[in-house]
Simulated scan of single mutants.
Amino acid sequence: MKDPVFVAFSTQKGGAGKTTLTVLMASYLYYVRGMKVLVVDCDYPQYSIKEMRDRDVEILKINKTFLRNFNELRRRTQCDPYPILIAKPEDALARVQARIEAGHEYDIVLFDLPGTINNPGVAKTVSLMDYLFCPVAADKLILESSLAFAMKVRDEIMTLNGSSVKEMYMVWNLVDAREKTDLYDRYEEVFEEQMLQTLKTRLPDTKRYRREGSKDAARAVFRSTLLPPDKTLLKGSRLVDLVNEILGIIKL
């Protein structure tokens, strides 16, 4: 049995997109690529991904289109929805290891972590990731917060004895098409000065990233724990580019 790769989209600023990117990557890898995925929701106390799964399950009971698409997916893949493990950050690795020792196999384990890096339990869990991806947006508060987070991880986490982090990358999210490209290039020069790498893929600011199932609308769904991102909404989202770039980095 091979060891899974531990990956986290992590930052300390809410609204940067770490939970959304975790869900979208998990759903795409599992439902489209057929990889064995475990999601670990450590974002105590709100547990946002678990709440999203609960909402999805409730929508199954109400929305016939959502239910039909879900049943068709299960018929085609012969798979149940990917598991979501709820754990406090300090307990997360032990809980994952227990599942692996019990015989569960995973290609990738995606962690949704709280942004309180000063918490010893969070810091320890971050240090045991294989790869970290830090979402950042061209918003002053998000930019400063994400940069401070990444520098703290670089200086205080990746240097720890026993740290498993191989690489960390900044990820441009919520990119406004009206902004000049050289704005992001200049920011990336700052990242490079701080010895921080940046993914080539830049994700656009588009409402589709927030489109979930609803109780009464028979519309295409992009963000869901029970369905993959709708094919018609993938075009222009750059999500597939992001997934392919990350898979190349983590060698899956």
Rank of each mutant, 00 (worst) to 15 (best):
81 P>T: 10
36 K>C: 03
211 R>P: 04
129 M>F: 10
169 Y>N: 12
133 F>Y: 11
5 V>E: 02
63 N>Y: 00
239 L>P: 01
151 M>E: 10
26 A>C: 09
213 G>Q: 05
178 R>H: 12
136 V>T: 09
155 D>P: 06
152 K>Y: 13
164 S>L: 15
183 L>M: 13
19 T>G: 08
236 G>L: 08
56 D>P: 08
209 Y>W: 10
234 L>G: 05
182 D>F: 15
3 D>I: 12
206 T>R: 13
152 K>R: 12
188 E>Y: 06
111 F>M: 10
116 T>C: 11
172 W>G: 03
100 I>L: 15
99 R>C: 08
233 L>H: 04
1 M>K: 13
165 V>G: 07
154 R>I: 05
80 D>K: 13
108 I>Q: 00
218 A>W: 04
54 D>V: 15
188 E>A: 15
244 N>D: 14
232 T>A: 05
202 R>S: 11
73 L>W: 00
122 V>W: 03
247 L>F: 02
221 V>Y: 01
4 P>E: 05
33 R>D: 09
57 V>T: 15
153 V>K: 04
72 E>K: 12
201 T>M: 10
39 V>T: 06
176 D>M: 03
156 E>L: 10
4 P>V: 08
126 V>L: 14
93 L>K: 12
108 I>P: 05
238 R>F: 11
56 D>Y: 02
205 D>L: 15
159 T>F: 01
136 V>P: 01
88 K>E: 15
220 A>W: 05
63 N>Q: 07
205 D>P: 02
52 M>G: 01
237 S>R: 02
249 I>N: 00
218 A>L: 06
248 G>C: 09
202 R>A: 09
84 I>G: 05
224 S>Y: 01
95 R>I: 05
125 T>D: 02
111 F>V: 04
136 V>L: 00
195 M>C: 07
85 L>Q: 06
66 F>R: 01
82 Y>V: 08
154 R>L: 01
48 S>L: 10
201 T>C: 12
219 R>P: 02
155 D>H: 11
95 R>G: 04
173 N>D: 06
169 Y>P: 11
134 C>H: 04
130 D>R: 10
48 S>D: 13
100 I>E: 01
176 D>A: 09
252 L>K: 07
59 I>A: 01
80 D>P: 03
186 R>D: 13
194 Q>S: 10
157 I>D: 01
103 G>S: 09
62 I>H: 07
88 K>C: 07
177 A>H: 12
175 V>S: 07
232 T>F: 00
130 D>P: 14
212 E>A: 11
11 T>A: 10
8 A>L: 02
69 N>L: 11
33 R>T: 04
117 I>R: 08
230 D>S: 14
69 N>Y: 06
10 S>H: 03
201 T>F: 06
195 M>T: 11
189 E>A: 14
185 D>E: 15
212 E>S: 13
182 D>K: 13
94 A>K: 12
144 E>D: 13
34 G>A: 09
53 R>Q: 14
197 Q>G: 04
